[in-house]
Design a protein around this nucleic acid. Structure first.
Lengths: 103, 103
DNA sequence: CCTATGGTTCAATGACGATTGAACCTGTCG
DNA sequence: CGACAGGTTCAATCGTCATTGAACCATAGG
């Protein structure tokens, strides 16, 4: 997997993306992001009891799996699902996961 | 994760199932099973170059993740996706994955 | 009985991942 | 300047996983 900040989804296989989803904490984060839309990182893991470094690790996995995009505005980091890009590369996948993310 | 032969899907979270899908070999196997329906195990990994023990390992992961069901008829082992059960527990998930399993 | 065939199990190995705590970095506010 | 808030990075630990090869087990066919 590339360590570029935001990999091109064309270069990722389904298994790479699935690995990003294969963790309870990250699924919870995905669900939160699906609800909130783009938001500050801290809001995404606020109710998960993750340490900062652990949350940072999970954000990196999500980013390297092509699932989220991070942007810096002012001094805040924002994070958002790459909804459209994922829908184009893997149609229906994100929706199905988000719909079941509470299971 | 339970080590029972075929876990009840109600007892599995989405992350557990996702881990079953988070491997290229297993995704390939899932795709093959989606195409063939119930069939002999060997047909599922024939074109993957997996050793027998490695294939057996992947079948076990798929089984413990609730993705496949194995049955013995005669002296042959058969394997099939648990389509209906998965569709009931995680609506739309398997279809979305199978549709993208070649990516 | 002998021998495939088709799978499982076991032990070992190497790689990867989740988690933690400490150090660090950077922009903001006082 | 000093302190702080929000994140990142690093090293270390521990567990899990993929892969291999060898041993094993059951069944069908000669």
């Amino acid at each position: 997997m590339s360590d570029r900040p935001h990999p091109d989804l064309a270069g990722l296989g389904l298994a790479d993306v699935m690995r990003g989803f294969a963790d309870p904490s990250r699924l919870h984060m995905v669900r939160t992001m699906a609800t909130l839309g783009e938001c500050e990182c801290s809001r995404v893991y606020a109710d998960l009891g993750l340490s900062k470094s652990n949350a940072s690790h999970h954000f990196r996995v999500l980013r390297e799996s092509g699932i989220v995009r991070r942007t810096q505005r002012g001094n805040q980091q924002y994070v958002a699902l790459r909804r459209e890009e994922l829908a184009e590369r893997f149609p229906g996948l994100l929706d199905a996961i988000v719909a079941n993310a509470d299971a």
